[in-house]
Design a protein around this nucleic acid. Structure first.
Lengths: 224, 224
DNA sequence: GTCTATAGCCGGATAGAC
DNA sequence: GTCTATCCGGCTATAGAC
């Protein structure tokens, strides 16, 4: 698997994405014409990510959002319930989507890792937003987010345990501990996206070097 | 080196820390009695970290800060120039301090890694704040922060290159790439502090497992 | 050195015209 | 479906009493 084949398989076009968002949150969207709604939601949510990334969601004002999207204040409220609820839907949608995609992996460690990185590339603004704004969540939403995060970690743990039983991976580190060291490596791709862009490291090279690092570490075999 | 010996060596008591902060930013502090100022600065900055961590610095209001510190709005302005400048001093102080401590390592990879983790433990709220609020920085400050981050990475690169020349580390991965995979592991300790606390993983165990992971990876030697 | 009071601006949200 | 106008509460910052 590489990024190209992953993209082909999932066909995550923007339209499909926001169409699914519309279906999930119709209750909080006053506009009932789906075609119009999807087009505007795309604009509003993209602008939200842009502004949140350069300030923070909390300090972004709806007046700024209105200016950035060229939609009036009143107009915005036809697409969102209120400011807090907008943030909530973004968090929920990513959790929903992430679990859906991850559950389709074949359970191998490399497969899970690549799937996570590739998905976080396509949904980079969503992942970045969710990570950065997670602290602002209300208690019930925080619990929901933690549950979702643990689920992702559980995929890694299961894959490592499987490898350990097969004798592919050693048992020096518990699968749990190993998984908790792998997760931050995955996060780096969407948290420090600018760094990798600047250094002209493409996504498949990133996966490759990360997998080597995870598998082999740094030490020479002769020192084992 | 372990956490205890590191702590002894650096004696980073809160008083010393805020005393150094006071000296660095006297210009923006109206109160000239150092003893009083240091005591209050400690209260103000701790409260700033607490509130920023649960919301964000931008959305924290000075009214909240006033309530949390039991210092009136007017009173606060005797210790800070304004809200934005407060954030700036926090960023600057950590960069200043971090580089000071890192420059005293012996240049070995394990030493640099342990120093970073131990320092980020003692200054956890500072590190967390700097990471989370880095996007809000003005352009010149952002450049300063990036410079500081690259410097930290440079310490890792140099150590790995040294190990590669000595034949201790293999050359499958460039030192630069390896370093960029190690950094997010270090960040995890202060970004997800709650997770490690919950799982009752202490700081020396964390360093130990991370060093094993970095050195050896997951794979069994027989599969090499 | 610390407080209260207030200036002046900006925030989220909604009503109602078109 | 989109806009303008407006409510009103909260914000940073400062002036001036003690």
């Amino acid at each position: 698997m590489n990024f190209k084949s992953f993209s082909k398989q999932f066909k995550l076009t923007n339209n499909q994405l926001f169409s699914e968002y519309f279906d999930l949150f119709t209750d909080s969207i006053a506009i009932k014409n789906k075609k119009i709604a999807v087009r505007k939601l795309k604009i509003i949510i993209s602008a939200t990510f842009k502004l949140s990334a350069s300030q923070s969601f909390a300090s972004m004002s709806l007046r700024q959002l209105s200016e950035e999207t060229h939609i009036s204040m009143g107009g915005l409220y036809a697409y969102i319930k209120n400011k807090q609820h907008l943030s909530l839907t973004l968090q929920r949608f990513l959790n929903h989507y992430g679990q859906k995609v991850l559950s389709q992996t074949d359970g191998g460690l490399e497969n899970i890792i690549r799937t996570h990185v590739y998905l976080s590339e396509i949904l980079q603004p969503w992942f970045f937003f969710a990570f950065m704004e997670s602290k602002n969540l209300t208690k019930p939403m925080k619990q929901y987010a933690i549950k979702s995060e643990l689920l992702t970690e559980a995929y890694l743990v299961t894959a490592i345990e499987k490898g350990q039983i097969q004798g592919k991976y050693k048992k020096t580190l518990s699968a749990q501990v190993a998984a908790s060291h792998i997760k931050p490596l995955l996060h780096d791709w969407y948290l420090k996206r600018w760094k990798y862009r600047q250094r002209k490291i493409n996504i498949d090279d990133f996966c490759q070097s990360m997998l080597i690092f995870i598998n082999d570490g740094l030490k020479c075999s002769k020192h084992n």
